[in-house]
């Protein structure tokens, strides 16, 4: 496991704490002082014990530019999700079942494991693709309607839009 300096640990702890506190407020949906106090203590303790487990990023993730790109990513992702559903619906309803399945691969430029995980999850939820495995920086994707088996073209077709935004966040 990687060794962290005190500053890195502090940064991760704070990011973790803020995130958990947001979830706490969303679940309790109240700003009563005793609820907030208990929430601060609970989430603080949890994030203290899970510095290595839960956090992906240092405190730099909270900069406004990155938060803007995160919200942008959510938008891109939602559009892709709705498209994916209409696509699946079209394939399921049409009588001749228009599919041409296969497994393709492509390489990504993303470095950290968390970025790769987010990309793989997004690929699974976008039209006609399902991520099967990641080996180092190569993604193996089950594609319901294979248009090309060339890795570069497949990358352009499947993952380029997501990766552009993810490179700005991570």
């Amino acid at each position: 496991m990687e060794t962290l300096t005190f500053n890195q640990k502090l940064g991760r702890f704070i990011v973790n704490w803020i995130f958990l506190m947001l979830v706490w407020i969303m679940f309790t949906t109240t700003f009563a002082s005793h609820e907030i106090l208990i929430g601060l203590i609970t989430t603080g303790l949890i994030s203290l014990f899970s510095i290595r487990l839960f956090t992906c990023c240092n405190i730099s993730i909270l900069s406004p530019v990155k938060i803007f790109w995160m919200i942008w990513y959510l938008g891109v992702f939602t559009v892709a999700l709705i498209k994916a559903n209409l696509d699946v619906a079209r394939r399921v309803i049409s009588p001749e079942l228009p599919i041409n399945p296969g497994i393709v691969k492509f390489k990504t430029k993303l470095k950290t494991n968390y970025a790769k995980m987010v990309l793989a999850n997004s690929i699974t939820l976008t039209p006609g693709t399902l991520s099967i495995d990641i080996v180092d920086d190569t993604f193996y994707i089950h594609w319901i309607d294979v248009k090309t088996t060339n890795p570069e073209e497949a990358f352009k077709e499947i993952a380029e839009d997501f990766e552009k935004v993810l490179l700005k966040i991570f």
Binding site: L81, N85, V88, I99, L125, H142, I144
Partner: peptide
């Protein structure tokens, strides 16, 4: 026809 395609349909449609 097979499990991978079934997962495709299952995951996407049920998520939205």
């Amino acid at each position: 026809p097979d499990i991978f395609n079934r997962l495709q349909a299952g995951t996407k449609a049920t998520t939205l």
